[in-house]
């Protein structure tokens, strides 16, 4: 497979350098982030970001979109009983854990936003402790409860989510605000913007969804594991073309529309 490794001050720049060398568009390559790069102090100890860009075997955009669409539109065949059983089991496990942590709390089981979600809402006086720095304690609890109740069969089970004091809602709001802000920045600068913090899959999803209806932006996640980053890419050429023609943006032939589900 053909690939190049490039450096840049930021991941975005490293990617741009790679595209220049390969002489292809962003959609033709797969980017692996090798190192993230740091600014250092006053330029000392600064490390450049390194990426590897590999030419992608032609996976057409159409195909890719179809794949995500079928996944999104297919309702999970997890039955109501399964979800309720998972909620009850999760509640029991969480009650045990909180008890052992010495935390007084009551747990309310409620239905989530989608069919396969169930939310365990913790009411108590220790919510700050339960949430932790950047939600890491709540995340850890959720992960362990999921691991414990899912019987490790590896198949997709109901999603058990933990919440307390509407933390999830507040987190979603702040991620959405950040997504819109960075989206504006990407459009203004006509350059891809990286959300340069590690985010969980659920957090990235919130950002993808927040921007999916914007016809001038495309979002994409690159890298693996702890290095996975979300990229917000402006579709600048089309914008300029439409402006020159004096068309109203967002009418026919705009990519973003294809992504909307019926």
């Amino acid at each position: 497979m053909d690939y190049v490794e490039t450096e840049g001050e930021t991941i975005d720049q490293a990617i741009e350098n790679a595209l220049k060398i390969l002489g292809v568009g962003r959609e033709k390559v797969t980017i692996d982030i090798l190192t993230e790069g740091t600014k250092g102090i006053l330029g000392f100890g600064a490390k450049k970001a390194r990426v590897r860009a590999s030419l992608r075997a032609a996976l057409s955009m159409g195909e890719e979109r179809k794949r995500t669409q079928t996944r999104a539109s297919q309702p999970d065949r997890i039955s109501r009983e399964d979800i309720e059983a998972a909620g009850q089991k999760g509640k029991d496990v969480l009650t045990d854990i909180l008890g052992l942590m010495g935390i007084q709390a009551s747990i309310e089981v409620r239905r989530g936003e989608t069919e396969d979600e169930i939310v365990l809402d913790i009411h108590g006086d220790s919510s700050a402790l339960l949430i932790g720095r950047k939600g890491q304690t709540l995340e850890a609890l959720q992960y362990l409860v999921t691991r414990i109740i899912n019987d490790r069969q590896g198949k997709e089970g109901p999603h058990v989510l933990l919440d307390t004091e509407s933390y999830r809602g507040r987190r979603r709001k702040s991620l959405e605000d950040m997504a819109l802000r960075l989206g504006e920045k990407a459009k203004r600068q006509r350059k891809a913007v990286t959300v340069n913090v590690p985010l969980s899959a659920a957090d990235r999803r919130i950002i993808h969804l927040a921007l999916q209806d914007d016809p001038w932006l495309k979002t994409r996640s690159l890298g693996t594991g702890a290095y996975r980053r979300l990229l917000i890419i402006p579709e600048g050429d089309r914008k300029r073309r439409d402006e020159e023609k004096g068309q109203t943006p967002g009418k026919q032939g705009v990519k973003g529309d294809a992504r909307k589900l019926p």
Partner: peptide, 13 residues
């Protein structure tokens, strides 16, 4: 990591 996180939360209490 998750076990340690929960443990630290309980311990800080």
């Amino acid at each position: 990591k998750s076990i340690r996180t929960i443990l630290n939360a309980a311990a800080s209490r």
